[in-house]
Amino acid sequence: MAVIGHDEAEKAFLEAWRGGRLHHAWLLAGPQGMGKASFAARVARFLATHGRAGEGHAMSLDDPGDAAAGKLVDAGNHPEIIHMARQLKDKSKDLARNITIDQVRGMIRRQHLSLSLGEWRVIVIDAVDDLETDGANALLKTLEEPPAKTLFLLISHSPGRLLPTIRSRCRTLRFQPVDRDVMTSWLHDIRSMLDMAELRAIVAASGGVPGKALALIDSDVAAMEKKLLAIASSGDPGNRLREALAREVGGTSNRARLELVIDIVPGLLAQIARERPIAEIASVLAQWDRVQRNVRDAIRGSYDGAMVGFEIGNCLAELAPRHAQTAR
């Protein structure tokens, strides 16, 4: 699939490589879903399949380079590409809360080994925001005295939360939300079966983040809107619809569905407000304020997706016509 939103970052990296001025650490900063991990994978493959910095005239990170090295990268077996991320908990499908100090120490030990293939060792940390405190400090020491021919790609969704000393030792590439018209055209090219009205709604809800737009498409926006409107129109007597919503968006694996609900509720409330008498608009706005408070409180706390989903359902149920509320 074609990438979007990487043009400026790719240009900056290739200019540094061609000029032999490749900084040892790059901070890939921007909203989650901008494709920063995809960009890091392209950079890692590029360095694994090309020679010394400044050699050659590759015009793109997707220049194939050495075919044998490329096959190893594609198979996930290239010895000089190290990928660090949160690991699965023991006997669990859930990810650990952090990238641990032991993972960082393992990466540092690898740095003492001689390169066995190619000119570069590439270390991708996805995301550097997930490092526990000791791990961040250990990484900082490595960035202060970087090994030769080693390049760090630090993916960050919230660079302001990183240690300032880590940020100061990196060259930052910023991945900004994509313009609406560009995003709409891109989605139309890769999802041509969607009508333009639905595409525009998805682009608006995505905030210019390609990964979020794709998640919205894959989550079936229309089906979710229908479920939420059913709560708002019926009042959900017996809580059946709200309980189903809570199950659907609860748990770590359903975070994308919860974010989808949070994204599309404003549009639904606007639709409801347009259909109500002027005297009832204030009550619709009050429920939107309530939704925002619930989301903020959840983020500050444990972010219980099921609870947030049920509370959003409660807000919508309060907007049911009076005869439906009486039936409750």
Rank of each mutant, 00 (worst) to 15 (best):
G5V: 10
G5K: 04
A9N: 08
A12K: 07
L27V: 07
M34F: 07
G35D: 12
A37F: 14
A58K: 01
M59C: 01
S60K: 03
D62A: 13
D63G: 01
P64H: 05
G70D: 00
L72I: 05
P79G: 00
Q87H: 06
D94M: 11
D94C: 02
L95D: 07
A96C: 00
R97L: 12
N98I: 10
T100Q: 06
I101G: 06
Q103M: 07
R105D: 11
M107Y: 04
I108L: 11
I108N: 01
R110V: 02
E119C: 11
E119A: 14
V124W: 02
D126M: 04
A127C: 06
V128S: 04
D129W: 03
D130V: 07
D130L: 10
L143V: 01
E145G: 04
P146G: 09
P147D: 03
T150D: 13
F152M: 10
S156M: 10
P159Q: 11
P159G: 06
R161P: 10
L163G: 06
T165K: 07
T172V: 03
L173A: 08
R174C: 10
R174I: 12
Q176N: 13
P177R: 15
V178A: 02
V178L: 04
V178I: 13
W186D: 00
L194D: 07
D195C: 05
E198M: 14
R200D: 11
A201L: 14
A201E: 15
I202P: 00
V203Q: 02
P210T: 05
P210Y: 05
A213C: 05
D220H: 08
V221C: 00
M224W: 10
L229W: 00
S233G: 05
S234H: 10
G235W: 08
P237L: 06
R240T: 14
R240L: 14
V249M: 01
V249W: 02
T252M: 12
S253H: 14
L260E: 12
V261T: 01
V261E: 00
I262K: 08
R274H: 04
E275G: 15
I278A: 15
S283G: 05
Q287S: 03
Q292A: 15
R293N: 05
V295H: 05
I299N: 06
G301T: 07
S302M: 08
G305R: 01
G305W: 09
G305M: 04
G305H: 05
G309K: 04
F310E: 10
F310K: 07
E311A: 13
L316R: 08
A317P: 12
E318G: 06
P321T: 04
H323V: 11
A324K: 14
Q325F: 06
Q325S: 09
T326W: 15
T326C: 12
A327L: 15
R328H: 07
R328L: 12
